[in-house]
Amino acid sequence: MPFDRLKPSRVLNVERFSDFSEFRANEVLGLGISTPLRPREFSLSRAILPLQNGLFVLQRSFARRYEAEIGTDNGVGLVVPLSFRCVANGTEVDNSTIAVMRGKVPVDSVEQQPNTYVMLRFNSDMRHRGWADFNAGLAYVRAQDDPMARLRAVFLEMFTLASACEDARQFEALNRPIQETLLAVLDEALVPEAHATRPGSFDRYRKLIEQLDEVVELFGSKPLYSDDLATALGASARTLQIATQAVHGVSLHHYLRLKRLWAVRIQLMTGGSGLTVKAAALGNGFWHLGDFSMGYKRAFGEAPSETLARGRRPHHFAVGA
């Protein structure tokens, strides 16, 4: 991820250090001691983004030995590699390995080259999503290539969007849509695939999906977020994930995304003269407008602007004799 594209904004703090004596560690996952392996080549860049449910720090570090108690007092911490290789506590960690931590964990690592990664601290422990089912400690999760590529793309978009933001209130309104997308790709990377549905479970999952559809109807024009729907149904987000996969063969995120695309389509076909594609997309929880437009065209065979233009044409009805 090219740091030179990221500029400070109303919501994004960008820090750059070219001298080790000026370097200050970030406390997102605890403080530690960094010893440069090549002090004359020292350079560090960091972008800090607070969102509603946590703190996210994109960092390009320097070749170093790092000794620390890392983790969180509450919630869960993650380190997601972008371009990364080190040996931590005797374990080789590379681009495919996500570190997940609960509580504080001693770490002694050696990074022979500059690494780029994202540190995430969530206020929630995310157990309801099926992440890392252990009480305390550090685990390394080896993710598949496709989920990792999607995860990196989401990070690129969210930090780029934050860098270009000139209105903090506007970005605050996008917090939940951004986090919903991020949670979906993290679910894909961190949660093992569900095993075949147990005998007798399919009917229970089918009824849960029927209830989900009813709740979605009750939500009306409100954006659909997995945690809100799970709460309304008295289920966990993980259970909803398993149910949609069992009944429809798609992820919960994909299922809800299709419903949100249909909600946008109905608005574009019936909206008034003041409606815009951007307003309809943002109103239904789509924050990455380029991705929204591509998804809309894949789903309906036309661009959202074409749907809107057709919806604005006057309709003539033939009257019988």
Rank of each mutant, 00 (worst) to 15 (best):
M1L: 08
D4P: 04
R5F: 07
P8V: 04
N13S: 13
N13W: 10
N13Y: 09
V14L: 11
D19H: 15
F20H: 14
S21P: 05
E22Q: 14
F23Y: 15
E27F: 12
G30T: 06
L31A: 13
L31W: 11
S34I: 04
P39M: 09
F42H: 08
S43Y: 15
S43I: 12
I48L: 15
L49A: 10
G54T: 03
Q59K: 15
S61T: 11
A63K: 09
R64D: 12
Y66I: 03
E67A: 13
G71D: 11
N74Y: 14
V76R: 07
G77Y: 06
V80S: 07
P81K: 01
L82A: 08
F84P: 00
C86K: 04
V93N: 01
S96G: 03
T97H: 05
I98H: 03
K104H: 13
V105F: 13
S109H: 04
V110L: 10
E111C: 10
E111Q: 11
Q113A: 13
N115Y: 04
Y117T: 00
R127V: 03
W131V: 04
A132W: 01
D133Y: 00
Y140F: 06
V141Y: 01
Q144D: 06
R152C: 02
F155V: 03
F155Y: 10
L156S: 07
F159Y: 11
F159E: 00
S163N: 08
E166N: 11
A173H: 08
L174I: 02
N175W: 09
R176D: 06
E180T: 05
T181I: 05
T181Q: 05
T181F: 00
L183Y: 06
A184K: 00
L186E: 00
A189K: 00
A189N: 01
V191C: 02
P192H: 02
E193D: 10
A196K: 11
A196M: 10
R198D: 09
P199R: 07
G200S: 08
D203W: 12
R204M: 11
K207C: 12
Q211T: 04
D213A: 15
V215P: 06
G220R: 03
S221V: 13
P223C: 08
D227Y: 02
A230E: 01
G234I: 00
A235N: 06
S236C: 01
S236M: 01
S236P: 00
L240C: 08
L240F: 05
I242M: 11
Q245M: 14
Q245P: 07
H248I: 07
G249K: 13
L252W: 05
H254M: 10
R257W: 08
L258I: 08
V264I: 09
V264K: 02
V264G: 14
I266C: 13
I266W: 15
S273A: 13
G274F: 10
T276E: 12
K278H: 10
K278D: 12
A279L: 10
A281V: 06
N284Q: 14
F286D: 05
F286H: 05
M294L: 07
G295T: 03
K297W: 07
R298V: 11
G301W: 09
T307S: 14
R313H: 06
H315V: 07
